[in-house]
Design a protein around this nucleic acid. Structure first.
Lengths: 240, 240
DNA sequence: TATTATAAGTTGTCTAGACCAGTTATGGAG
DNA sequence: CTCCATAACTGGTCTAGACAACTTATAATA
């Protein structure tokens, strides 16, 4: 399996072998791999060399590790459609997944500088801060924090959030959503995200900041989402 | 600087320190860092521990390595605006950079299954295959391969490509470009990309596949681009 | 002076251990 | 039988070296 005299590094040979085994279906998603010590013994190499191979595959999203349990084959990345103003709910339904949310907190706070700037309001003006975990088939997918001006949208309650926020905005509050800006950025998961998304340390995270505006240009919301980078691939449909 | 009795891993402490030095401006872009052996000696730790810290920062895009030369501070990521059907040329101009292209190859080939499927034409039908390196201020930014049906766009020449392809299509060939689909995906650079983009091995690459369609739904082009992931951050403007 | 070999520097790969911190199977006590 | 301590696993961190491959400064040579 491994050629120690090859000019190719041993760790690279192991990487290629494991990738082949995943692609051929020999290793299925969420199957446990042989332990690092088993690989080291089998190939008569140091465990650090095995770790170098596995580290790379973890970084590339092929595998994930769990301390004390083992190393496992990751899911294939989902393609994420970003069709216009597609919401998380619609997005997940389109994939045949069952979307749900878990409300972490819902409060009215004074806007800090950043929030005030994003929403074009004064500092300390009241804003809703809504934190949610977004799940698909009960698997945590993203950690979302949403800010909206409390002076713009009045009478928001937990119930409305759990039903349909955008329907309320358009039908009840009579506000027309017009356009949005999304910025995609990748980063390493913070402790909060690790906890809420149930992912290993140092996992890659896809940050999406969405700013939604009304027809008159008023900012409606400012949303920060931390998506599990191991579950997404983005598709954007552009119409002109 | 480093607390060996801290519950925080040593490699993590080193990461944080280097990040602070980059953010504070103490380490400027393209400056060389102290060598791994210097760090190991200074902190009285093993070189492998230093490497673990630096590896993580390289993976996160803070640093890059050059065998035999040293480890250097990376450029800050550029934000990439994806405004509608923004072309590479317009995109770079918007950043105050001077866009240019280097034609690698321009030929008519028979479509393989994949190309035929993307362009909705028959297998073996003639297609233009245009390979280009895209540069900004003479720095390679992306490797681009474009496919277009030769039966749809006739009389395409190298000169037209170097001038304005889309202007030719709309004005001369009288075809109306309507919409496009872009899929973003990250991967590790292949040997071809390493060579053409002048990046180190195992660099992250942002793959963008763009399919452009005409008003009647006919596929116009199918473009695969490999962008240097160390230079991009994507912003999408969505209008409905 | 210009060229070329050499030395000294760098990162890249690898070893053969060690101990820590979680998880899980096992086996004994009640 | 259930419960619980423990042993046997797992990955996480770290050591103190080694040699290879590559780059660059230095010194010897033509």
């Amino acid at each position: 399996m491994i050629d120690k005299n090859s000019p190719l590094p041993i760790y690279f040979q192991i990487e290629e072998q494991i990738k082949r085994q995943i692609e051929s279906g020999e290793f299925q998603a969420h199957n446990a791999l042989p332990s690092e010590r088993e690989y080291a013994e089998q190939f008569e190499i140091s465990r650090m060399t095995v770790r170098q191979a596995i580290n790379n595959l973890v970084n590339d999203g092929y595998l994930y590790r769990q301390k004390g349990r083992g190393t496992f084959v990751a899911d294939k990345k989902l393609e994420q459609q970003l069709n216009g103003l597609t919401s998380f709910t619609e997005d997940m339904k389109a994939r045949g997944l069952n979307p749900s949310s878990k409300l972490l907190s819902f409060e009215i706070i004074p806007a800090n500088k950043k929030i005030a700037n994003e929403l074009h309001i004064s500092t300390y003006a009241p804003v809703y801060e809504i934190k949610r975990i977004r799940l698909a088939d009960d698997v945590p997918m993203a950690l979302e924090t949403m800010y909206m001006s409390a002076n713009l949208i009045k009478g928001l309650t937990e119930e409305i959030i759990n039903l349909s926020l955008y329907q309320y905005i358009e039908n009840y509050a009579k506000l027309k959503i017009d356009y949005a800006t999304q910025t995609l950025e990748s980063a390493i998961a913070s402790d909060t995200e690790i906890t809420h998304l149930a992912i290993p340390k140092h996992s890659p995270i896809l940050f999406i900041q969405r700013n939604t505006f009304l027809q008159d240009g008023t900012p409606l919301e400012y949303v920060k989402s931390a998506y599990r980078a191991d579950r997404y691939k983005f598709t954007i449909n552009i119409t002109r």
